[in-house]
């Protein structure tokens, strides 16, 4: 790369300097190969999560209990598709094609948020997912608005605007249930119980166990640690649960006056790794659903490019004839 006229070490030093001084890295800038790889991994995982995340909620669109809730849920799920698209495009700026990213998702090489391996069993789960799952995602994404890679940071700013509507619609569902009939309140409590702990797991392992953390922090791909982000989420959720009049699923939760935050019970990390490693209720189903839609759509995509080719050819023919 004589173009830069600098050694790899010099390039890396000036790259780090830009990162340290909070300048955004843009697609055409020089970047360490490991930075690029790390970003592709994280951004595509995020994109895949938006796409796979359509399934548990999509599963309830046709069963939503009122037309108003159906409308809101459908537009929420549709937003997630839009987020997926947006993030795929942002990832493509790193020199990789969407088709490669999708192939990696389908082969299991790329991951998506493990929370979506949990089944959405009741209408209450639409409340819990919007409130807690989107809520946890927002905490993470707000932090990522300051991530060092420009296209990713700008994507997060745009996506976060819609995410707060997502969390809101989930919480509204929970409020309606919590102030509703005893059976509805029971439904809300059950959903909270099932989704609370998995939501905490969304922030990833403890910092001491996290494989990608140190380098990501240095490069400012990540801006805050897993544990710090999780703590924010735990603290913001306590009054929300109280307002609903539901029981907090963490029986060991106590306010720590000195730290100004809540101490909480330990997460079941065995469950976390078990679900990540394929033992969730829906792991296989999620990928198979995606593969099936993709394969069933192959002839449509083929038809589209064949038509486009014919159209271009006709135009060329017409011009030659003229």
């Amino acid at each position: 790369m004589t173009k830069y006229n600098k050694s790899e070490a010099e390039l890396e030093a000036s790259f780090q300097q830009r990162v340290d001084s909070e300048q955004k890295i843009e697609p055409k800038d020089w970047m360490p190969e490991a930075y690029r790889k790390n970003l592709i991994r994280q951004m595509s995982q995020h994109a895949h999560s938006e796409i796979i995340g359509m399934q548990p909620e999509g599963n309830w669109i046709t069963r939503a209990p009122s037309l108003r809730r159906k409308t809101v849920l459908l537009s929420k799920v549709q937003d997630e598709a839009g987020h997926g698209l947006y993030l795929y495009s942002a990832t493509e700026t790193l020199g990789i094609e969407r088709s490669e990213l999708i192939a990696a998702l389908q082969s299991g090489k790329a991951k998506y948020a493990s929370i979506f391996n949990y089944p959405a069993q009741t209408w209450g789960d639409m409340g819990a997912i919007g409130w807690l799952v989107d809520g946890a995602a927002i905490v993470n994404q707000v932090s990522l608005q300051r991530t060092s890679y420009g296209p990713y940071a700008r994507g997060m700013i745009r996506i976060c605007k819609e995410e707060s509507f997502h969390q809101r619609q989930g919480y509204v569902i929970m409020m309606e249930l919590a102030k509703g009939t005893p059976a509805q309140k029971q439904m809300a409590q059950d959903s909270l119980n099932r989704f609370y702990w998995p939501s905490l797991m969304m922030f990833g392992p403890h910092d001491s166990e996290s494989a990608h953390s140190a380098k990501s922090m240095k490069w400012k791909i990540k801006r805050e640690t897993n544990d710090d982000l999780r703590q924010k989420f735990i603290d913001q959720t306590v009054p929300q649960i109280a307002y609903l009049g539901l029981e907090h699923p963490d029986k060991d939760l106590v306010w720590n006056e000195e730290k100004g935050q809540h101490d909480s019970g330990e997460i079941d990390w065995d469950e976390f790794y078990a679900v990540i490693n394929g033992n969730g209720h829906s792991n296989r189903q999620r990928i198979q659903h995606h593969v099936k839609a993709h394969e069933e759509g192959a002839w449509v995509r083929d038809a589209m490019s064949a038509y486009q080719q014919k159209k271009t050819q006709r135009k060329v023919n017409a011009e030659t004839a003229a």
Binding site: I51, G58, Q78
Partner: peptide, 27 residues
């Protein structure tokens, strides 16, 4: 709305969702 998450590509998940929402609005 049954197409959402089952479309041939993501742009169509969005577009079919849009049309479904329009009809839902009319209803």
């Amino acid at each position: 709305s049954e197409w959402v998450s089952r479309a041939p590509f993501v742009e169509e998940d969005v577009a079919l969702g849009n049309v479904a929402l329009d009809f839902l609005g009319h209803a």
